[in-house]
């Protein structure tokens, strides 16, 4: 379980131009329950990456606290803390000078695991994330973006952490690959049940992956917290409505009957699907 208690982060003089100076993160409180996926979604400037980095002490809050299983991370050794938490970042954040296997084995080796064992485990992890073990001796630059991203996930899993932090991990790949990676993450999560804190600016990604979606406005102020269905059914305000796109045409769906089936149309009248119960009849 990860708990944010009134966390604030002020980077200082940065926003001297704005009349109402607010810090990057202003009084943020949230509980991420164990074995659940919580997605922070917001546009740039919403402080979502700062929030993520508070968990592994890449950023220390100016005030307030972040607790993992009841323990304030401020009292832990940052290096040991980081090795105990899986971290996946955009483009995988792989080390370009290490082979795929060495990248995956990074944390076990830092923790003093025997090289041979760590390498052997790395091959198993590659298969777990859907990669062929023959890629083990390649360098990251020799992989596609989607493959690099999978290696990034494998590396985060290597030390078998309870917590995974994911910072827009699928932001730099094309939509089809992104979809595959999202499915892969959902499959892994049903197998592994990690506590995942995931950051994205893509509301559709948030809805697909999250048990709980947290919509952020600027300065990490929470606009709404809830499941995808709750937020779609009942957007808290105009900000959330605009953000999830329901103010536009794409989420205002209507149905029409064609040849005895119910066809779903978007706001512009384009057919986007049929109702499932009838589709299979």
């Amino acid at each position: 379980m990860i708990e944010f208690r009134h966390a604030c982060k002020d980077y200082g003089e940065s926003s001297g131009a704005s009349p109402s100076h607010l810090p990057a993160v202003s009084d943020f409180s949230l509980t991420v329950p164990s074995h659940r996926t919580v997605v922070l979604v917001g546009s740039s400037g919403s402080g979502k990456t700062t929030l993520l980095r508070m968990v592994n002490r890449m950023v220390d809050p100016t005030s307030g606290a972040v607790l993992i299983d009841g323990q304030d991370v401020a009292h832990t050794d940052p290096v040991a803390l980081r090795r105990s938490i899986g971290y996946v970042m955009q483009q995988g954040g792989l080390l370009p000078h290490r082979t795929v296997a060495d990248n995956v084995a990074t944390v076990p080796i830092l923790n003093g695991a025997p090289r041979r064992q760590a390498r052997h485990d790395a091959l198993g992890l590659l298969e777990r994330v859907g990669l062929d073990a023959s890629l083990a001796d390649r360098y990251p630059a020799e992989l596609s973006g989607g493959q690099q991203q999978r290696v990034g996930v494998a590396r985060a899993l290597a030390a078998d952490p309870n917590i995974m932090l994911m910072d827009e991990p699928f932001g730099a790949v094309d939509p089809i690959v992104r979809r595959e990676l999202q499915d892969e993450l959902l499959r892994l999560q049903t197998e592994l049940g990690k506590t995942i804190l995931f950051v994205t600016h893509d509301i559709d990604e948030a809805f697909r992956l999250a048990d709980v979606v947290v919509v952020l406005r600027e300065h990490a102020l929470i606009a709404q917290t809830g499941t995808a269905a709750q937020i779609l059914a009942n957007p808290a305000d105009d900000f959330v409505r605009t953000f999830i796109g329901s103010a536009g045409a794409d989420r205002a769906l209507t149905t029409t009957h064609v040849d005895g089936r119910t066809v779903v149309l978007d706001g512009a009248g384009r057919a986007v699907g049929v109702l499932a119960a009838e589709a299979t009849s």
């Binding site: 890449m58 971290y87 970042m89 954040g93 080390l95």
Partner: peptide, 15 residues
């Protein structure tokens, strides 16, 4: 040195 690679290294526990 690529800043992102360096950040990632710190994030996974290099120091």
């Amino acid at each position: 040195v690529d800043a992102q690679a360096r950040q990632a290294a710190i994030a996974v526990g290099y120091s």
